[in-house]
Design a protein around this nucleic acid. Structure first.
Lengths: 153, 153
DNA sequence: CGCTTGCTTCGAGTGCGCTCCAAGGCGCTG
DNA sequence: CAGCGCCTTGGAGCGCACTCGAAGCAAGCG
């Protein structure tokens, strides 16, 4: 959660993350699955499962075969995590990353996908605010600040 | 959706809905499951299931055995619908209505339940807003209004 | 060295919230 | 009175998103 937010701030330096001259591969930060799990709020199981179904490209491995996540992986994960957190189905996330893999020519499709999700997010916000009003009212009633109305409902 | 909102406005007259002298039972508005489904956005299947698991008290029946929902039922459903829509687990909703059935002495517990849910709702709103910002940024990039950063993520 | 802790695999299992089925009844319209 | 659509039941089934298990390898530490 807290960490997710810090990933977002990396947006600004993301071009840097993706500069990869393949010359100094060991100087790039590399994270174990446990660290990434901790940071992203997703379990290690879920991280492996995301990779299996193709949400993540195959992650680099250490000499002994353990996963080592790059900052680029973390970055993508942070974004995917936000999409999930806000209710995008995994199938749609998959569609998005598959479009992304096809390169520049799918950018219009990806934008449409994000536009649709933005609408969904806005709708959710509206629903939540409406519910918040109802909750506030009922809580006031329960707290005895307002005359109560009847019973349960 | 639209209908849900109109149910909420009944809050103000809810004491009236619950006045039930049992003298003029046929004058109370009575709704078929289809109408209620339409109005609440829940399928007829789901409405029957809610009743089966105890989220709704047993609904009145017509002479031929078909369900006839009262405005009180609609009212409770509208509220339950809001709780579901905003992510409260069915188990918690059940706990809430069971407390309500036990009468006045559980009102503190019910208030606590609603307080907890209100916090959850606020958290969701915060998450959604944060995501909205990210989406806005990315959509801008895809639309070409901003220099793009690298690729997919 | 032994111990602990964390990592690997992949298929099977879980929990939630519906969703559907089949077979039959009700009731309005033409 | 035929036809049509909506209603009834209990139990089984489904889709999603994880979640876990079991067996085994690897790294770090006193």
């Amino acid at each position: 959660m807290t960490e997710l937010a810090s990933f977002e701030t990396e947006l600004r330096s993301c071009w840097e993350v993706f500069r990869d001259p393949a010359g100094t591969p060991d100087r790039r930060p590399r994270h174990t699955i446990g660290e990434v799990s901790e940071a992203s709020g997703l379990t290690a199981h879920t991280l492996r499962w995301y990779e299996r179904i193709g949400l993540l490209d195959p992650v680099d491995r250490s000499a002994s075969g353990q996963r080592r996540y790059s900052d680029g992986d973390l970055h993508r994960l942070a974004f995917l995590g936000r999409l999930r957190l806000t209710g995008m189905p995994v199938a749609d996330m998959l569609r998005y990353v598959e479009l992304a893999r096809q390169g520049e020519r799918t950018s219009a499709d990806r934008r449409d996908l994000l536009l649709a999700h933005r609408e969904a997010v806005r709708q959710q916000i509206a629903d939540l605010h409406a519910t918040l009003a109802v909750l506030d009212h009922k809580i006031d009633v329960y707290t005895g600040r307002l005359e109560r109305c009847a019973s349960s409902h």
